[in-house]
């Protein structure tokens, strides 16, 4: 399998599409629906890339960043959000995210960004 991608998004409609797309491009995909679920998943599925929605049922998607052990290299963090504004971009940049993708992300753009952050 290819690089491990943790998708953190509560809508099954969206994750089903992302799973089909990413797996067809050779990625090993795991889906979490909440911050708590993602925090648990990280230990047995250390991801290379995290695709995270900002609004999750149990809180802010950026809270997931705190779950990564400082001793290990941190995965690339790509935020997926419907909020296309400077304040959101600045908040994600301050938190150390590697990119902000505005939903719906055209699938070709997503695959391109994934390849560039992994390279």
């Amino acid at each position: 399998m290819g690089a491990r991608v943790l998708v953190i998004e509560d809508s099954v409609l969206i994750t089903s599409a992302l799973q089909i797309l990413l797996e067809s491009h050779g990625y090993d995909v795991r889906v979490s629906r909440t911050v708590a679920d993602a925090t648990r998943a990280i230990s047995d599925f250390p991801p290379h890339v995290v695709l995270v929605d900002l609004t999750l049922p149990d809180g802010d998607g950026l809270a997931v960043l705190k779950a990564f052990p400082e001793t290990q290299p941190r995965p690339k963090i790509l935020v997926m959000t419907g909020q296309d504004d400077a304040a959101t971009r600045a908040r994600c940049a301050d938190a150390g995210c590697d990119g902000v993708l505005i939903k719906p992300v055209p699938i070709n753009d997503l695959i391109e960004v994934m390849a560039s952050v992994i390279a």
Binding site: S11, L13, I14, S16, A17, L18, I20, L21, S24, G82, K103, P104, V105, P106, I107, N108
Partner: peptide, 23 residues
């Protein structure tokens, strides 16, 4: 507006997957 956006996002992404012949 927020609740309408989520299924629409999924519809568009699934449609793009079909369009590009992934399935």
């Amino acid at each position: 507006a927020h609740d309408l956006r989520t299924p629409l996002t999924a519809i568009i992404t699934h449609a793009e997957i079909l369009r590009d012949g992934i399935l």
